[in-house]
């Protein structure tokens, strides 16, 4: 399959270690691609270069083979975009704004727009100025997907959405994926990417640390078992004899890091008569720490 979005060694240095450095990755046609990284890692800076808002100091980025800065307006015919920091024309009502953007995009078929409004249960009659973050996010999503673009670039698409709407969003992405839309979405939440994306790039402090298949990344991810045992003595015994990797022990509480082997682990734990058990998935930061070494922070 063709690469629809290509980034080759793009660099934009804002000084003080801010910016992006030698960022390269590509997104194939019909692929849903995640762009993961903590806040301030350079996700939005990368996306702004894709959108042609800023020009890379070095390197090239292309969408559908066209230069993102020089041929920006050509590219936009096929691209839907949701900004990370939403800012609309505040004195318009949501409805007016959506209609305005439709006209600017030359979209005449309002069927899709209406369907998106229904999907997100958005009543865009009020002034944008008075809208909550979540409502603005919905307006942004409607604008990004109207006119059925071939490529969609979403910067932190679910921020401000409640869990129900986040699910609606996931459904929308999965439907688009079936239709063959190429999607690039940034996020700092692994689960969000995990549910929808095929592959993901991980960026940290402006540098790409990995481009991974979601499946293999999920497999690499450990679980943290937080076990509360009857007393400190048993906890000590557990630490010495259970054979599990104990991350920390405070009194009768133990935290273990476990990969796969759910059945065996549970059996082992059961032997020690636990009072409570909590299982959590490693956070994105913890994956970084684990797989890419505990490099210098920031």
């Amino acid at each position: 399959m063709n690469d629809v979005i290509e980034l080759e060694n793009i660099t934009k240095d804002y000084g003080n270690g801010k910016g992006v450095f030698n960022v390269s990755f590509s997104v194939k046609e019909g692929e849903v691609f995640g762009y993961l990284g903590p806040n301030g890692a350079g996700k939005s800076t990368t996306i702004r270069q894709l959108m042609g808002f800023i020009r890379p100091q070095k390197g090239e980025c292309r969408i559908c083979g066209k230069d993102c800065f020089l041929e920006a307006s050509e590219i936009k015919k096929d691209v839907g975009y949701l900004a990370g920091e939403l800012s609309f024309i505040e004195d318009m009502t949501g409805k007016k704004f959506i209609e305005f953007i439709a006209k600017m995009k030359g979209v005449t078929d309002f069927g899709r727009t209406k369907e998106l409004l229904d999907r997100f249960e958005l009543n865009p009659k009020g002034k944008i100025k008075r809208m909550s973050k979540g409502m603005k996010q919905k307006v942004g999503l409607v604008c990004a997907f109207m006119g059925n673009p071939k490529v969609v670039i979403l910067d932190e698409p679910t921020s401000g959405l409640d869990p129900l709407m986040q699910n609606r969003f996931v459904e929308l992405i999965l439907e688009e994926k079936k239709k063959g839309t190429t999607i690039l979405m940034s996020s700092h939440i692994f689960e969000e990417i995990e549910k929808t994306c095929d592959r993901t790039a991980i960026i940290r402090a402006g540098r790409i640390v990995a481009v991974e298949d979601i499946k293999s990344l999920s497999e690499k991810r450990n679980k943290v078992y937080k076990i509360t045992l009857p007393n400190a003595k048993i906890a000590e015994k557990f630490e010495k004899e259970s054979g599990m990797i104990v991350k920390e022990r405070i009194g009768n509480c133990i935290q273990c890091i476990v990969k796969d082997k759910v059945a065996d682990t549970l059996k082992t734990i059961a032997e020690y008569q636990p009072v409570d058990l909590e299982i959590k998935t490693q956070s994105l930061e913890e994956i970084f720490m684990h797989f890419y070494g505990e490099e210098e922070d920031g």
């Binding site: 808002f53 920006a72 307006s73 936009k76 920091e85 800012s87």
Partner: peptide
Amino acid sequence: DNGSMASLLATQNSRRK
């Protein structure tokens, strides 16, 4: 200043236009 230029430039209208 408020960033809403992004909404305009995200459409197929060129900067010049």
